[in-house]
Structure formats: structure tokens, C-alpha cells
């Protein structure tokens, strides 16, 4: 009974994938509302090559953006988490919620000053600027996650190390970092998917040559899309990296979700 129900629900959850793949493989002339569910008579791979050609520069942008911003924000978050967790900073009780609040704000409420600031600092339009923005707005969640992980490291261990003469960086390098592998992966997966999937900053802060993949997809789907095969092929290409990460590293992905929600 339970098994059957699970299978049925799984089919329901996979229906959109089926529709997307089927539609993306049809020739434009074959796409028809009434036969939307049928398999293509002959698979037409052309949509993928067209979509890929249009997407290639944007995919590159997305990779550079997501990887750089993920690594930088994770590195900063891990140092911040370490400091906030193990060093008595005056006012830390207030600092932490103030930092975390930054991850919940609707970006519409800072959008106009943000692009004015980017213009004034000449960071507007290119990838470096977008990376900066994603690093800054990624700091709350990375700091929070690392702080939660480091709380599990007993203070006695640190005390012992510092008696042995290790300084701030020594403890971080030889005690904290070796323990940070899994959390680092969790944070990176979380940040990578978030940044890869982001749309509002991408559409307002990037010049066309620096636009990431989500904007390219919105252009393809909402612009001059005549038939549905192209947007569907585009959706698959845009989704592939994060879905792959998720399927391969799903365990950590789930841990990231949980840490974000449960530890607050």
C-alpha cells in the first residue's frame, strides 16, 4: 500500500520532467497542445544545440560567478563563524541576529541604493560586482552555518591548543579546518545552488555580456519564443548543474537545508 502510494506520488513529481524532456525533443512543427503528452516521432536534438549556442557565454558567466562567490563567501563565513563562536566579541549577542537578518530581507528593499552604489564604485555591470553582491548577501547564511557547526567543537580542545602556544590562525588551521570538511561542502552546495538560481540581481546588475544563465533563460522563454522546444531545452541546460550536484551530493544538500532551518 505504502509502496504503491510512494510510486504514484513519485510519478506525479516526475511528470514535469517528462513533459520538459519530451517537448524539448520535438520539432517545432510537432508541438501541439493535444499531443503534448506523446513521445516525439523522431527525437530532434537541434533545440539543444541552438539553446546551448545561445547559453554558452552565460553558462560560463554563471560558473565563474557561482564558483568565485561561493568560495569567497564560504571562506569568509568560516572565519566569521569561528570568531563569533569562540571569541568573546563585545556585543556578539546582538551582532549575530543582526547579521542573520540580512539573509531574510526582500532584495526589492535595497535594490535602488544597491545599483547606485555599484555605479559609484564602478563595479556595476560586470562579474566582479555581481560576485561582490553575492558574497555580501551570502555572508549571513555562511556565517550562521559555520557558527552552528563550530559550536559542536568543545571549547576545552581550543583551550588545550592555546595552552600549547597555538595562536588564532594556528588553531584555525590545525584544529578547526581539518574538522570543517563536511560543513564546508554543505555551505558550498547551498551557496552554489542559491547563486546559480538567483534572478533579480542578475537581471538588474549585469550588463548583457555578464548576464548569468537565469537571465538568458528568461530571455529565451519570455522573449521571442515561438515554439516551446527551445525554452524546454534551455530549462534543462540551466537546471543540469544544480540537479547533478544535488543527485550526487544529495546527502550534504539535505544537511545544509536542515542546518539552515533547525539551528537558527
Amino acid at each position: 500500500m505504502v509502496q504503491v502510494l510512494a510510486v504514484l506520488l513519485a510519478i506525479a513529481y516526475l511528470i514535469p520532467v517528462y513533459m520538459t524532456v519530451v517537448t524539448s525533443l520535438k520539432a517545432p512543427g510537432e508541438i501541439n497542445f493535444m499531443t503534448a503528452w506523446e513521445l516525439p516521432s523522431v527525437p530532434n536534438w537541434e533545440s539543444y544545440s541552438i539553446a546551448f549556442k545561445q547559453f554558452a557565454p552565460h553558462l560560463k558567466n554563471s560558473f565563474i560567478l557561482a564558483i568565485a562567490a561561493t568560495l569567497i563567501s564560504a571562506a569568509m563565513g568560516s572565519l566569521n563563524g569561528y570568531v563569533l563562536c569562540k571569541y568573546p566579541i563585545p556585543g556578539a549577542n546582538i551582532i549575530m541576529p543582526l547579521i542573520v537578518f540580512g539573509m531574510f530581507i526582500p532584495y526589492q528593499s535595497i535594490l535602488v541604493p544597491l545599483f547606485q552604489f555599484m555605479q559609484k564604485t564602478k563595479l556595476y555591470g560586470g562579474l566582479p560586482g555581481l560576485i561582490l553582491v553575492h558574497v555580501v548577501y551570502g555572508l549571513p547564511i555562511t556565517t550562521l552555518l559555520f557558527r552552528s557547526f563550530y559550536e559542536e567543537i568543545p571549547d576545552e580542545l581550543l583551550g588545550a591548543a592555546s595552552i600549547d602556544g597555538a595562536n588564532f590562525f594556528g588553531i584555525f588551521r590545525y584544529l578547526i579546518m581539518p574538522l570543517s570538511g563536511p560543513p564546508f561542502l554543505v555551505v558550498c552546495i547551498w551557496q552554489f545552488t542559491q547563486i546559480w538560481n538567483e534572478f533579480l540581481f542578475a537581471v538588474t546588475l549585469a550588463r548583457p555580456d555578464a548576464q548569468p544563465i537565469t537571465v538568458a533563460l528568461a530571455n529565451l522563454a519570455g522573449g521571442q519564443a515561438v515554439s516551446w522546444n527551445l525554452p524546454m531545452a534551455g530549462s534543462i541546460l540551466a537546471a543540469l548543474p544544480t540537479v547533478l550536484i544535488y543527485v550526487l551530493l544529495g546527502r550534504y544538500f539535505v544537511r545544509g537545508l536542515l542546518a539552515g532551518a533547525l539551528k537558527g
Binding site: 537581471v203 538588474t204 548583457p208 548576464q211 537571465v215 528568461a218 530571455n219 519570455g222 522573449g223 521571442q224
Partner: peptide
């Protein structure tokens, strides 16, 4: 070129 969103995206950029 910026397309999509009924032309709003281009205006935003």
C-alpha cells in the same frame, strides 16, 4: 541585447 519580461528587463538594465 536584453529581451524577455515584455521588454521590462531591457528597461531595467
Amino acid at each position: 541585447t536584453v529581451t524577455g519580461g515584455s521588454g521590462v528587463n531591457a528597461k531595467a538594465v
